[in-house]
């Protein structure tokens, strides 16, 4: 097991290097940050001095090397908007995003498990059709629009929940529903298909033929086994979840990493943009790795190699 984990951890490195390379190349193409740092009437010597001190006169590959070297030490540069180290600004925002993400996953699970089991055990029933239909419409509906419609209904019309911001549980409800329903559709579909697969297995048929109550068969035999792919599915939703959080956080003025990134893109605060991208990429990749490892622990049929 340890051997496998170490090997997988090592595989993360090239992926992160490729991502950092793409980001660095884009920023490099974008041109000289010096123009933004100095007043317009700065003397040529002054510009040249700053370029020299920032290492901007070095060739591309040396600059990239320096960039990676600084990045490993956690130095993404200084945010000109916040006047502090970009990494610490990003890390400060992480708890808010985690809070929202966990609440969203809880909501998605609360929707996906009952509907997934329901539509798998009663295939082509009206509940199955409604669940499948809702999933398709949910996929077609832009997430940010759903958020706005929820604000319109619960905050503006009914006045029961706050419009935006973070603080109480009430603040968390609408953004969590918005983000959660975004992944619930996919989760329901996957639970349904993994339940269907298991319900056709021999041991389920045996259990049924022995006269065990069908509720018992579904929960004790089928659902428990369907949980194995489910854990993986949940972890693999991290990418979709964070992608969705970028927009949901902006809609609800939720002070997480998503809102920070969108603001940084708007103000061209490149240090923050780069730090956000690398941190998000690292989180997503680690969660995918975690999904693989948990899957292998839970399912003894899969051998590690």
């Amino acid at each position: 097991m340890m051997h496998y984990i170490v090997r997988r951890m090592l595989q993360i490195i090239p992926v992160l290097l490729i991502i950092s390379f793409i980001v660095f190349t884009l920023v490099f193409i974008a041109g000289d940050p010096v123009a933004l740092m100095l007043p317009e009437d700065a003397a040529l010597e002054e510009i040249e001095q700053l370029r020299e001190s920032l290492g901007l006169n070095e060739p591309f590959y040396i600059q990239y090397g320096n960039y990676v070297f600084r990045m490993i030490q956690g130095d993404f540069g200084e945010s000109f908007r916040y006047g502090q180290d970009a990494l610490s600004v990003v890390l400060e925002r992480l708890p808010a995003t985690f809070e929202l993400a966990i609440a969203a996953i809880v909501i998605a699970i609360m929707i996906a498990i009952p509907f997934g089991i329901w539509s798998a055990t009663k295939q082509n029933s009206s509940i199955d059709l409604i669940a499948t239909g809702a999933a398709v419409v949910g996929k077609a509906m832009p997430n940010f629009w759903l958020g706005i419609m929820l604000i319109l209904l619960f905050s503006v019309t009914l006045g029961v929940l706050p419009v935006s911001g973070r603080g109480s549980i009430a603040h968390l409800i609408l953004p969590a529903i918005t983000l959660g329903t975004g992944i619930a559709a996919e989760m329901t579909r996957l639970i349904r298909s993994s339940m269907l697969e298991i319900l056709n297995q021999d041991y389920i048929r045996t259990a049924k033929s022995k006269g065990i109550k069908s509720v018992h068969v579904i929960y004790k035999h089928a659902f428990r086994n369907a949980l194995i792919p489910f854990v993986t599915i949940t972890a693999l939703q991290t990418s979709t979840l964070i992608g969705g959080a970028l927009i949901t956080e902006t809609v609800f003025a939720w002070p997480g990493i998503g809102q920070l990134l969108i603001q940084a893109v708007n103000t061209r605060d490149m240090a923050i943009v780069q730090a956000c991208v690398m941190i998000i990429a690292a989180i997503v990749i680690l969660m995918n790795l975690l999904a693989d490892i948990i899957y292998r622990i839970l399912d003894p049929r899969i051998k590690l190699n």
Partner: peptide, 23 residues
């Protein structure tokens, strides 16, 4: 394929945002 995997590893919108921040 390694390149494709790296792209698939992170949300699509993330790269779009970097592009837009730059250009």
């Amino acid at each position: 394929m390694r390149f494709v995997d790296s792209f698939l590893a992170i949300p699509t919108i993330l790269f779009s945002l970097v592009f837009l921040a730059v250009f």
